[in-house]
């Protein structure tokens, strides 16, 4: 069975939630959140909890709103004109769209890694310590320590320790992406948002990033958007399947991949469309 967009738009979709046993509680709570680009709606009443300390994957075909949802979490969508929203997203119990929310502080608590590696055209060390420098931290020891710690956590230290002052643009694509992850965790955020972090990388680099995600699990809450189902299956604890702006099904990864309740989820995870 192939689902046409019209099938979904014509009737209300009820998101299927699988029972979860959250030990840590949720850190992000998306509550009937909708988003509009001008007049066209991109997200429809999305609702989900993100469990603390675990890896949550968001999968779905291209254009289903995965990235839009992810970018809403640290309000990167504010950069786009003509956006309007509805509903709430709570971060540690507080609605991030409240007027008194400090967006800059919010973004500091949520490190973000983008689809394409985007290291700044500066030295490797400067890249990693950038989040600290914009906070006005100038102490050389603090910066060096943070740099080393972040690079070690992203398993990049041994590769670059001798050329910390060289341009970051000289690194390979995979190294650049790991550098971006190091940069994102340098300021010790709560949450790490990853927007298809491996889509521009070769298989070997992808494996390294996935290993890294497994390493970082527990220290940070990770939300990863991917269109690679195997990757989602490999790295995540929970998985949300999105389709045309809606969360179709959300639950433990193994359940979503093995015993999904929705036909659409099953069709997607078994590769019948997407």
């Amino acid at each position: 069975m192939i689902i046409k967009p019209s099938d979904i738009e014509n009737k209300e979709i009820q998101t299927i939630y699988h029972p979860q046993k959250g030990e840590q509680g949720s850190v992000i709570d998306i509550d009937t959140f909708s988003l509009f680009y001008g007049k066209s709606q991109a997200l429809f009443d999305t609702t989900m909890d993100v469990e603390k300390g675990l890896v949550t994957a968001i999968i779905g075909p291209s254009g289903c709103g995965k990235s839009t949802l992810l970018k809403s979490l640290n309000r990167m969508n504010d950069l786009i004109d003509n956006i309007s929203i509805n509903g709430k997203i709570r971060f540690e119990g507080k609605n991030i769209f409240d007027r008194d929310t400090d967006v800059i502080n919010l973004r500091k608590q949520m490190g973000m890694v983008f689809q394409k590696p985007n290291p700044f055209p500066m030295s490797i060390a400067d890249n990693v310590t950038y989040p600290l420098k914009i906070d006005g931290i100038r102490g050389k020891n603090v910066l060096a320590e943070t740099c080393e710690r972040s690079l070690k956590r992203t398993a990049l230290w041994d590769e670059v320790k001798d050329r910390l002052n060289e341009s970051a643009l000289r690194l390979s694509g995979g190294q650049q992406q790991r550098l971006c992850i190091a940069r994102a965790i340098a300021a010790d955020p709560e949450v790490l948002l990853m927007d298809e972090p491996c889509s521009a990388l070769d298989p070997m680099a992808t494996i390294k990033i996935e290993d890294l995600i497994n390493e970082l699990k527990g220290k940070y809450t990770i939300i990863i958007v991917t269109h690679n189902m195997q990757q989602a299956a490999r790295v995540s604890n929970n998985t949300a399947f999105m389709y045309i702006g809606r969360i179709i099904e959300y639950g433990k990864t193994d359940i979503i991949f093995t015993k999904p309740k929705s036909m659409k989820t099953q069709d997607y995870v078994t590769g019948r469309f997407g």
Binding site: N74, M76, L79, I104, N105, R107, K108, M110, G111, M112, F114, K116, N118, P119, F120, P121, Y130, P131, I134, D135, C180, R183, A184, A187
Partner: peptide, 12 residues
């Protein structure tokens, strides 16, 4: 992407 990267780091 550079602008986004910087903003996502919490830069104003």
């Amino acid at each position: 992407s550079l602008r986004e990267g910087s903003l996502a780091c919490g830069a104003s």
